[in-house]
Design a protein around this nucleic acid. Structure first.
Lengths: 368, 368
DNA sequence: TTGTATGCGTTATCAA
DNA sequence: TTGATAACGCATACAA
């Protein structure tokens, strides 16, 4: 019992430590630590005594100290462009849900698509020794990200760097993407099937994803109707000012427009309405993402639905398995599916996913 | 130089420590630490040398170790109900922006409005020694939250506990709220001014905020038109199934309905349309929150706009000043303002805030 | 201007 | 079954 005596109990307040509960329970710190950890070698009575002491003191372990020793933090870093945005909000929600379920805490930084901020975020994660890092739709070069995080498990959700565009893009470990090619193909196919030939792509922002969807659309339109795709481009925030949007289509709008995302599409719907252009009769509109508000629009918006929350979950799960199994997170390409609604000539909007939609249809039928 | 020798350099990899850069620079750890901290007492040459060594090694400080000593973490905890939700997404964005600007990292946990999860979240923040904690729209009793966090600075954004409803509610320190009373009054006033008498409130979820807005509405309607407010109540997720919504209004809808939030209002718009009820002619609709999609709806949605991002910022700033100044964060009640749009008989939707709206109006005028 | 030594709160190793 | 002690990586009081 030559252990250094700490007169902790007298100076009240600054959060009780293990030493405090040990003192209160009349045992050593080692014993207290083991008792709280549920170590089987500690006798039931002592264990109970320590637990009681801890409770009475309101003891809460200091994770900084613990992780300093343990060399892990049970914390995950999540880097994304925006927190206020239906899509990334869903990604973040899925990620956090999965992480929390596994007992992990998540540190989030929104880097506003700025490479400098993204680098700082990565550094912050490293400083805080996160056990894993997920980079969602960032502007940074994936290779650079990978290099910076060193041996920390890394997953990338829909990495958005121009470098990714070239080459067949063998899937890098931990890369989680949506099958945008298929999405664009489904959308264009649907538009063409419904008899439209004069098609357009309305881009927004300067993300690589935007460019990729556009080029894919160009290719497919050429392939399907042998015509040139009309392309228009807006700033990233253009959707907030819908009145300015319809103007970019010029005096003679195309027959159909595929938009970079649902926000843009919703804004376009609004802008077109203002100009007296009716959707889908005059022009059909299709969005991308499948945010809930697409279903609520008037006309309801056709869209390529993306499993956003699922991507977040996978981003976390990839990290988790990499951490526990010690292996590199496996890549994934998630399927997307076109949801046809009124804006491209589909049936009246229904709030529910297909299975239920039928029931609702009946309800409506019996109503009118 | 009797300091314990660490053969660190030989075992490569596991992240270089201060000892490593000290060794490489040929100085003591203390000197290295001071040099990196920019301590003026260290000579310029040594400082440069240490910096160089740190760079070459790719040294990144271990914040767990630092904060163990420093007794602060430069981390803030943010507790909110949902990450996927335009309103809380905005709050989170504002909070993170403000925190990041001050060099703080934020740990977010989405507790899905579950008191148990909220308690766990609070504990997680304490374990991680966050320098401040912000509780946004949680179900936990603010008094309990305050008790649990002990002396850690706490701010509450729109606390959502039933206990808050009773009493005049002297503002607790760190409490940031919107002036919902005024918002409801503006909305009802507008509806009454436009000649409607048969009013309704459409609630959603079982949050205290919902109940508060409803009772306020009841009071004001009674006061203004001497009539009883019709009230309807939906589940929290009802807005995702818009077709079911309009039915709750029954065969004879009211002349106007004020909704708990914009999500509900948008869904109502959709549901009414399906039943052939036209807005605002048959029934006027007003939402609450002012999410961007309200402006995009057709008809565009009138709404009581709340400064969501601003609330997040204030939540963070309150913590920051409390941390640095050591005083209790000051409370605030933020003003809200009714934005009249088409859904309650206002002019055609305009994407921009008022100042610009005029210009847009002209553009439209010259157009038609 | 720089170095030595100590402690922050834990946990794990070694002894008893 | 329990205790003494060292070490995790850093910053600082005290020396020099």
């Amino acid at each position: 019992m030559r252990e250094t005596v700490r007169e902790r109990s007298e100076s009240r307040s600054p959060r009780p430590t293990l030493a405090d509960v040990a003192a209160k329970a009349g045992v050593s710190r080692a014993t207290a630590s083991r008792a709280l950890a549920g170590d089987a070698r500690i006798s039931a009575p002592t264990r109970a005594e320590v637990r009681r002491a801890a409770d009475e003191l309101g003891y809460v372990p200091n994770l900084a100290a613990r992780s300093l020793r343990a060399r892990h933090t049970r914390a995950l870093g999540l880097l994304l462009p925006e927190l206020s945005d239906p899509v990334h909000g869903q990604v973040a929600a899925g990620f956090e849900l999965e992480a929390a379920a596994a007992g992990y805490t998540v540190i989030i930084v929104a880097a506003r698509n700025d490479v400098g901020e993204e680098r700082r975020a990565l550094r912050a994660f490293i400083e805080r020794s996160t056990d894993g890092i997920c980079v969602a739709s960032s502007a940074i070069d994936p290779a650079e990200a990978r290099h910076r995080v060193g041996r920390i498990p890394l997953s990338l959700i829909q990495p958005d760097h121009l470098g990714l565009l070239r080459g067949p893009g063998e899937l890098l470990p931990g890369t989680i993407q949506t099958d945008d090619d298929s999405g664009v193909r489904q959308a264009i196919g649907h538009l063409v099937d419904s008899g439209r030939r004069d098609l357009a792509y309305l881009g927004s922002g300067d993300r690589a994803t935007n460019e990729k969807r556009r080029t894919t659309a160009e290719k497919i339109v050429d392939e399907l109707v042998g015509r040139r795709l009309r392309t228009y481009q807006l700033g990233a925030d253009a959707w907030l000012w819908p009145d300015d949007i319809a103007a970019v289509l010029g005096p003679e709008p195309p027959e159909a427009v595929l938009c970079y995302d649902d926000k843009t599409a919703l804004a376009l719907l609004s802008g077109l309405r203002r100009r007296g252009i009716v959707v889908p009769d005059d022009v059909a509109v299709v969005g991308f993402d499948g945010i809930p508000f697409a279903a609520l629009a008037n006309p309801s918006l056709s869209t390529v639905a993306t499993p956003t929350a699922q991507m977040g979950k996978l981003g976390a799960r990839a990290l988790l398995t990499a951490i526990t199994a010690g292996l590199a997170p496996s890549p994934a390409v998630l399927p997307v599916r076109l949801v046809v609604r009124e804006s491209s000539g589909g049936p009246p909007a229904l709030g529910r996913p297909l299975p239920h939609a039928l029931a609702v249809l009946e309800a409506i039928g019996s109503d009118g």
